[in-house]
Each structure stands twice: as C-alpha cells, then as structure tokens.
C-alpha cells in the first residue's frame, strides 16, 4: 500500500520527493521538451535553503532569473507578468530573500500538476517502469 508507485500517484509532491520518481518524471519531461519547468522547481527549493549572507546566494538568484525568468523560455511563458516583474525588481535592487521565487514556483507547480503530471501518469515512460 505504501509502495513508491502508490505514492507517486498521490501527488506531484510525493513524486518529486522520491528519487526514482523524480528521475523518471525528468526523463518524461526531457522527451516532452519541457524539463526546464522541473529544473526551475528544484532550483527554487535549493535557493530557499541557501544562506542569504553568502555572496553566492545573490549569484544563484541572478542565474535563476537569467536562465528561466527574463527570457522567453517555457518557464517564463507560464509565469504571470506581475510575478516576473517582482523577481526582476528584487534582482535589480539586489534585494534578495529566501521566498522571492515562491510565487513563481507555485505558478509553475500548478501548471505541472494540471498538465505534465497527469500526462506522466499515463505515459510510456511510467508504464514501462510499472
């Protein structure tokens, strides 16, 4: 009853909290050409755990912004304009805080839950694993 597979179908969160599940979902997204959404989701989690006093943290915030938010990437297209503006302002003013990507992460997560996650559960990658 508590097999990994049972957990994966419970929620996107349980899938991503499992090593095999996250790996398999990543494989699926690579095939669908939208693996950036998952990398962004993990980057937001990683960023939240960083030490704000560490100079590295500002560089990571900038890197996340440049790679996923400021361009026309798949992540950027799924974010609300206000969310992008909020992040851009924080980066510009070098005012970073641990939760600055939280809203963006939530938006991306909702899209994944309603779309990629559902598709994954009926995908070849998943069924082959079963």
């Amino acid at each position: 009853p508590d097999s990994p597979l049972a957990r994966w179908t419970k929620s996107l969160h349980s899938l991503l909290g499992d090593q095999d599940g996250a790996y398999l979902f990543r494989t699926f997204l690579e095939r669908e050409k939208c693996v950036d959404t998952l990398d962004f989701w993990f980057a937001c989690n990683g960023f939240r755990q960083m030490d704000l006093k560490d100079t590295k943290t500002l560089r990571v915030a900038k890197a996340i912004y440049k790679r996923y938010v400021e361009n026309h990437s798949i992540v950027s297209k799924q974010l609300k304009p206000a969310t992008k503006t909020y992040i851009r302002d924080g980066i510009k003013k070098q005012q970073i805080d641990s939760v600055m990507f939280d809203q963006a992460q939530t938006e991306i997560q909702r899209v994944m839950e309603g779309n990629a996650y559902q598709m994954f559960l009926t995908s070849e990658v998943y069924l082959e694993y079963l």
Binding site: A22, A43, N45, A63
Partner: peptide, 20 residues
C-alpha cells in the same frame, strides 16, 4: 570562481531527493 551555470546546477542538485 564557479561559473553561473555551475552554481545553478549545484543549487538544483542540492534540492533533488537523495534517498527513496
């Protein structure tokens, strides 16, 4: 000094699940 890509990769990896 690490490149931006390395820092980003490190950040992503740090958040990936390590155990089942």
């Amino acid at each position: 000094i690490d490149s931006e890509d390395d820092l980003l990769q490190e950040c992503i990896s740090s958040a990936m699940p390590k155990t089942k």
